[in-house]
């Protein structure tokens, strides 16, 4: 089966399955967060899984999407257009700074992306006249419920956001799989193996890296816009360092090489804190231990490890 079609079918089935078994709005709420995170992490998969570039600043792009969606409507821009402008703005910024930043590698790339993310975070926390400062701001406008009312469905708010974000996550995943299997995706993988070998194959390495960076920034920004709309309130912490780390962790935990890794990583790190409320005092220790142990025992992430296991069983 065509990989993009397979991805579509599996993920769409999961979105529907969730809706069938969820007993309350709370589950839809957690499901919504899983899909938003899946979308953001899919962008990390393009950057880290396909090309092998580490960004510790992607929360900055996430925040640009979120804040554009929060700020622009008060200047008369409709929410949907605001979200699109936010995504475009994040993409533009990534394209501009991508070239010089992506000449760096390893830990130098990590500090440069981290610095970029921190700068965005700082602007959002300091410029209170625009962003409400560290206390955050209310996101006016869009209500997903109204969208479904147009087609005669009366859903609860949490439920309607679940469907909207699920749709975006599925579309984002299909797009990423398609990208990965295009000639351009193969070029990216060649760069992942070796910059030098890739350029000797005639690949414009700098351009390809910058493209991947831009695309992953747009993913993060769209996810940010969705979070802003679904939450109705945002603070600069969506652009903070720990959020960047969280996105990369989700990707690596699940397996950065595939969009299924993005989903599994997003699911675990979103659901785990909800399960761990019972052990509130130990939450951080458990979370930290899970991160360390997964990386030691399943270096390529959960999904590849499980696939290997399944293959070995079959033999």
């Amino acid at each position: 089966m065509n990989p993009a079609l397979r991805t579509f079918l599996i993920l769409a089935a999961l979105v529907v399955a969730g809706a069938l078994i969820f007993p309350s709005s709370y589950y839809y709420r957690v499901g919504t967060l899983v899909w938003i995170n899946t979308l953001a992490v899919t962008g990390i998969v393009v950057l880290l899984g396909y090309v092998g570039l580490v960004s510790l600043g992607h929360a900055g792009f996430f925040a640009i999407g979120a804040y554009a969606t929060a700020i622009l409507p008060s200047y008369g821009v409709p929410s949907v257009l605001a979200a699109i402008l936010g995504a475009a703005g994040a993409g533009l910024l990534a394209a501009i700074v991508g070239r010089p930043i992506l000449r760096l590698s390893g830990y130098y790339l990590a500090i440069a992306t981290l610095g970029l993310g921190m700068l965005i975070w700082m602007v959002l926390s300091k410029e209170a006249w625009l962003t409400g400062g560290p206390d955050g701001m209310t996101v006016m406008g869009a209500n997903a419920r109204d969208l479904f009312k147009l087609v005669g469905l009366n859903l609860r708010s949490a439920e309607s956001w679940y469907w909207v974000t699920g749709t975006f996550a599925v579309l984002g995943a299909v797009l990423a799989v398609n990208l990965g299997n295009s000639p351009w995706g193969r070029a990216l993988r060649a760069i992942h193996d070796s910059d030098v070998a890739a350029s000797s194959l005639g690949i414009d390495v700098a351009k390809a890296k910058s493209m991947a960076f831009t695309i992953s920034a747009v993913y993060a920004a769209v996810a940010g816009a969705l979070l802003a709309l679904a939450n109705g309130y945002i603070t600069p912490e969506v652009g903070g360092f720990m959020h960047s780390v969280e996105m990369v962790t989700m990707a690596v935990l699940g397996g950065a090489a595939s969009v299924f890794g993005a989903l599994v990583g997003a699911l675990i790190l979103t659901a785990l804190p909800q399960v761990l409320t019972v052990f509130a005092d130990y939450e951080h220790m458990i979370l930290g231990a899970v991160m360390v142990l997964t990386m030691i025992l399943m270096r390529r992430g959960l999904v590849p490890a499980l696939v290997d296991l399944a293959k070995r069983r079959r033999k």
Binding site: G18, Y27, F260, V264
Partner: peptide, 18 residues
């Protein structure tokens, strides 16, 4: 279909905890 199983397990863990 390991993934679905995993998700089902996750969801039931969620249900147990609450």
């Amino acid at each position: 279909m390991t993934k679905t199983k995993l998700i089902a397990a996750g969801v039931s863990a969620l249900a147990l905890s609450v």
